[in-house]
Each structure stands twice: as C-alpha cells, then as structure tokens.
Design a protein around this nucleic acid. Structure first.
Lengths: 209, 209
DNA sequence: AATAAAAACGACATAAGTGTCGTTTTGGGG
DNA sequence: CCCCAAAACGACACTTATGTCGTTTTTATT
C-alpha cells in the first residue's frame, strides 16, 4: 500500500494537454474541434486524453478556469497599484496594464463566445455563464461604487448599469472581432470612443484620459 | 411541352418550410438543429426538404435573406417618415417604430450570432457576414452623415466610428441577451444610457429624447 | 531486479447526422 | 380519363465523432 505511480508530474501532463488544447480551440473554435484534434496536438492517445478530461466540455471548462485564476491574480495586482485614481484603475482592468486601448484581444475569446452561445439551452452551461458574468460584473461595479463614494465619479447613473454597459461593450467588440477582419472592427477607435463614453457617464467632463 | 407540374405553389411550400425552420432554429439554435428537426417541424420528408434546400447552411441563409428584405423595407418606410429629425430617425432604426428602448429582441438573433461565430473560419460564411456588416454600417453611417451635413449633428466624431459603435453595442446586447436571462441583461437601462451618450456625442446637450 | 498500481494506449462498438437515389405519388394539360 | 414530368418520399450507404475497455507500458517502491 504505497502510491506506486508517478507523483505530481501528472500536473505537467495535464498542463501540457491543456496547453495544446488551448491552441486547438484557438485555431478551430469550440464547436469544430474534436477530441481527435486535441489528441494529435497534445501527442496523447485517446484513452490517455480521456483519463484527464471526460469530454470536450470538461476540457474547455478547465481552460476557462485556468484563465479565471490568471485574471483574478492580475486584477488583484492592478488593484494594489491603484494609487493613481479609480479611473486609471478602471482603465487598467479593461485594457490591461498600460490602461490604454490597443488592438489586442484574447485569442480564445471567439471560442468562449461560441461555448456560451451554443450552450445557452443547456442548464449547466447557462448557469456557469451566469456565474462568470456576475463575477465580471462585480469587479467593475465595485470599483465604480468605490469611485463614487470617494467622490471621484459622479452618481448620475447606477454603478451597476455602467458596469453592465462595460461588459456589453467588451462583449460586442469581442463578437465583432471574432467575425470581422481586423480592419473592419477598428478596435482602437471604438475603444477610444467608448472611453469617452465612460468618462462622460462617470465624470462628465470631456477630457478622456 | 407544357409545365406539367404545380405552379407558384412551390413558393407556398418553400415558405412553409422556411417558417417551420425558423421556429426550429429559434428553439434549438443553429448548431443543434438538424435537418431531421426541420423535416418533422415542416411535415416534409427528407427528400422533399433537400429538394428545396441543399443543406442547413443554405436553409439558414434563405431565412437570413428573408429577414434582410423585411428590414430593408422597414428602414425604407421609416426613412420616408423621417420628417421629424435625423435623431428620431436614428432612434427608429435602432429601436424600431416607436423609437424607444424596449425589452424586445429578434428571437432569431442568438442563432444568427451562432451562425456567424461558428462559421468564422469558413471563407464563404465570413464574406457573407462582412457583407451584412457593411450593409448595416452604411445605414447608420449615412444617416449620421446626413444629420451632420444638415447641421443637426455635430461633427466632433467620425460618423463612421459612431456607426460602428452603434453596431457593437447592439451586438453586445444581443450576445448578452442570448446567454443571460432577461433580468440580468437590463436591456432597457443599458439602452437608455447608450442613447444618452449618443445624444451627447451627436448633439452635445444632455436631454435624451 | 521484481512487482504492482495505475497511466497510457488504441481498437472497437455505438450513435447521430448527412446527402443520395430509386420509387411512388400527384396534379395539370391533352 | 389518361398521362407524364416532377414533386415528394424514405430507405440506404457513408461519414464522423464519441466514450469505453481490455491490454500494454511505465515507474516508484521494496
């Protein structure tokens, strides 16, 4: 009675599968990728793959979960550097470290949209999507509320409504970006305009930065 | 040599299939519906169905095309009643006849999103999506430009960028609405906030209507 | 080295959907 | 009333993906 098998290097294998799978999902999208694709990309057999993940949905959720952890860390890190202002903090969370609209997007975003849209009639998937939405919503809403309490943001609008609008806008951009070629979306211009919008809703002045 | 078969009642059958298919797509979404579903819903045999539509994609595009015609008519009709103002016209096109944000959404919208997202790697589908995007864009952009030329709208922003943002916002709402339950999206509140901003961006005043 | 637990493998049985094609039915013209 | 083109049918062959399961290979412990 001793754990005769390998140790925590199961983690490595699992991670390697997850990494390969991520690449596959990025390339083919959620619906179109098959376990075969993942097997080939990860260099693992059918049985081997199923030992770690019982199906595609399970696999994809594992990837989502990973991303969630990273995000959580990052936003926490940002929060700690929030010395400047709530506005800057908000920009950081939306646009990343440099707090400025750029042309980068999560390459997995299209697959995520697929995952939730095509699964919208599935009880479980729907509930999962809602949980994630709530989490994202809370992050934005909390900051806005704090900013309002600190007097930095005006209280003309409900923090909640504005937070929802942020998500809606980001989702819209992700969607358009998934479907249309780079040139047609104009990520940067639209983001800048959106920042102005936020500035208008939160501060009221006309200088966005 | 005489057209021995039925006459324009082919149209009726085609229309009836299309109608049934629309219902199926609304219920199951694009990816999940099968030709079998449509066959059953339309009360037509496999061979019969394939006589009218060579596959699911063909079928769905036929539905899209139908909608496009209706839209074109409607927006044209609206255009003719544009006596009031460009602002009102814009609101009408975005929110429909009564020009006010409500809670209604195209029930087929989720399936449309699916169709274009899952097909984003398909040359043909992608091109089709882009064409539709351009069409929508043009409608908004033209009105905004006209409004600017007429002096009703200010020219602070490119009409094009604003038009793109309108589409992005609508897409975002459609996406969230597809995934989340009614209560969580807050269609109305979000739309009202967006309208306020549009008003601000196009006119500058703070009274939205 | 021996060994045993379990990790990895891959063939297989199953399931589901697709598009075709030969046959049957139908309806309008002769 | 007959006829035949084509409309409608539905069985079929094919394809593709899934998840399981008995077998083989590792690998850490003894």
């Amino acid at each position: 009675m001793s754990p005769r098998v390998s140790e925590e290097h199961l983690k490595q294998r699992r991670a390697s599968i997850l990494k390969a799978a991520t690449g596959v999902f990025i390339e083919h999208g959620y619906e179109k990728t098959t376990m075969k694709h993942v097997m080939d990309a990860a260099g693992v057999s059918r049985g081997g793959l199923y030992q770690y993940f019982s199906n595609k949905e399970d696999l994809f959720e594992a990837i989502l979960e990973e991303g969630l952890n990273e995000e959580a860390e990052q936003s926490l890190a940002s929060l700690k550097k929030s010395s400047t202002s709530y506005w800057h903090l908000l920009m950081q969370i939306i646009f990343g470290e440099d707090a400025t609209p750029d042309t980068n997007m999560d390459p997995l975003a299209p697959s995520k949209l697929e995952f939730f849209i095509t699964g919208r009639n599935d009880e479980r998937r729907r509930a999962y999507g809602e949980r994630r939405y709530e989490m994202g919503l809370k992050i934005y809403a909390d900051i806005i509320k704090e900013g309002q309490q600190a007097g930095e943001f005006r209280t003309t609008h409900h923090a909640d409504t504005i937070a929802r609008s942020i998500i809606t806008f980001i989702d819209g951009l992700a969607l358009d970006h998934a479907i249309l070629p780079e040139e047609k979306v104009r990520l940067k211009e639209q983001s800048e305009l959106f920042v102005q919008y936020l500035n208008y809703a939160l501060i009221g002045a006309d200088s966005s930065s």
